[in-house]
Simulated scan of single mutants.
Amino acid sequence: MSSTESPSVPAASVLPKVAPVRVGEGERLRSVGLPGVTLSIRSRRPAREGLPPALYVHGLGGSSQNWSTLMAELDGVVDSEALDLPGFGDSPPPDDGNYSVTGHARAVIRYLDAAGRGPVHLLGNSLGGAVTTRVAAVRPDLVRTLTLVSPALPELRIQRTAAPTALLGVPGVAALFTRLTKEWTAEQRVRGVMALCYGDPSRVSPEAFQDAVEELERRLQLPYFWDAMARSARGIVNAYTLGGQHGLWRQAERVLAPTLLVYGGRDQLVGFRMAGRAARSFPDFRLLSLPDAGHVAMMEYPDVVATAFRELLGDTGRLSTDAEDADSGVAAPGAGS
């Protein structure tokens, strides 16, 4: 594994020069070269030595920035890293062009194996929830706990508001959409995304909105932006159709790690009713229902999600920073009951 560190250096020199990626206070960004893929990793300086490691995986069209607020909330609890999936954020496309759920999961596994930080507390949102479910099922040795925020697990009847996202995976639709919306400003696009993803878009601060606009303007300059979106959307649709041992719900049943499930009552992309299906599928689960949240509860209610995460760690003894303490069931001070 090769790694270069910089607050704003593009992940690959062959890519066109675009505006630098935003790095929040207390964060750093580095590029990690792995076989077949280069990943951008966002991290925070640990509050103290010996904290258990955590890795965060974003959803379709998102980036590691989606986790910045929650990562800050969990300072002193875990040693946080968030990655940009291949083709998103500051990570260039994968060498093989594989944007399937399995392809993304393979990238996460390669990073964890190379970094040697596992087992980690693994957190995923939307597409990242599907990816991390697959990682936890096939490599239980890499996962201490699993936290899923509105995971994109198969629904027989998707919500009408989620249909355009699914259609993005149909060949040619992304190119058509690009042509039809070429006059849209970045502000218009961001408002549309926030209306879709947030339970209450008015909760977004003017500063956060402007940051999102600047990030979208940066990413729209990348020649692979729409291709990564379309192929990843297609990957989700394809994962929904898989049956047998490779089906995501079947893999959920094989997850050994204690799992926190977070669902929003105003989620327009993942049906709130899926919380019941998830609760019946993951063997060791805790459910956090947020009636006013949308699709990105970790951005809308980071304090509530952080509290539930700390309680998960306290309940399972995973707050311990020492393996022997974890084995004996001794939780660190401040653990939830």
Rank of each mutant, 00 (worst) to 15 (best):
R231N: 12
W184E: 05
E49I: 08
G169C: 00
S126Q: 02
P10I: 00
N66T: 06
G336H: 12
F285P: 08
R277C: 03
S100I: 01
V120Y: 10
M229I: 04
E324S: 11
Y99K: 07
A163H: 10
F285E: 07
R28K: 14
M194Q: 09
R22L: 11
T147K: 01
A114H: 01
A107K: 09
G264Y: 14
V138S: 06
R254N: 04
V170E: 10
D95S: 15
P302F: 07
A163L: 12
W226R: 14
M71W: 04
N98S: 13
A306C: 06
V120C: 10
G129I: 13
A82Y: 01
Q251M: 15
L74N: 00
P291D: 02
V101E: 00
R28Y: 01
V237I: 14
G116T: 08
L196M: 13
G128H: 11
T321M: 14
A12Q: 10
V78E: 05
P7M: 12
F88R: 05
A239T: 09
T161M: 05
G124L: 14
I236H: 00
G276C: 01
G116Y: 10
V32A: 07
R117T: 14
S91I: 07
P92A: 00
V255R: 03
P86M: 01
H121V: 12
S80Q: 11
G128E: 02
P302N: 12
G33I: 14
R22D: 04
G294P: 02
T316L: 10
P10S: 11
R318P: 00
V213M: 05
A186V: 06
P333C: 09
S328H: 05
V18P: 05
L74H: 03
A175R: 13
G235Q: 06
A332D: 01
A11G: 12
G169L: 08
